[in-house]
C-alpha cells in the first residue's frame, strides 16, 4: 500500500514528530508508514485522513492484485 502522508505533511508544514503527537503515535510509526514498512490500521488511516481533512483514499493507495 502506497501513501502520500509525506506530501500532505509537507503541505501542512508539519514534522513527523508534530504529526505523531497529534495522532498519539510514535514518530517511528509515522516514519514506518511513510516508508511503506508498516500499513496502519483502518482506525489510524481514518484518523490521518480526518486530520488532513481529506478522504482516506486520497492518502492511501491500495495496489492489490488485479
Amino acid at each position: 500500500m502506497k501513501n502520500r502522508i509525506r506530501v500532505f505533511r509537507a503541505m501542512h508544514d508539519l514534522t513527523q514528530d508534530q504529526l505523531a503527537s497529534k495522532l498519539k503515535v510514535t514518530r517511528q510509526t509515522i516514519l514506518a508508514i511513510e516508508k511503506g514498512k508498516y500499513d496502519p490500521s483502518l482506525e489510524l488511516a481514518f484518523k490521518i485522513a480526518r486530520f488532513f481533512n481529506v478522504p482516506v483514499e486520497e492518502i492511501f493507495i491500495f495496489e492489490g492484485e488485479g
Partner: peptide
Amino acid sequence: EVIQDERTTL
C-alpha cells in the same frame, strides 16, 4: 511521551 502504539504492540 507516547511510548506504545499499534505498531509497537504488533
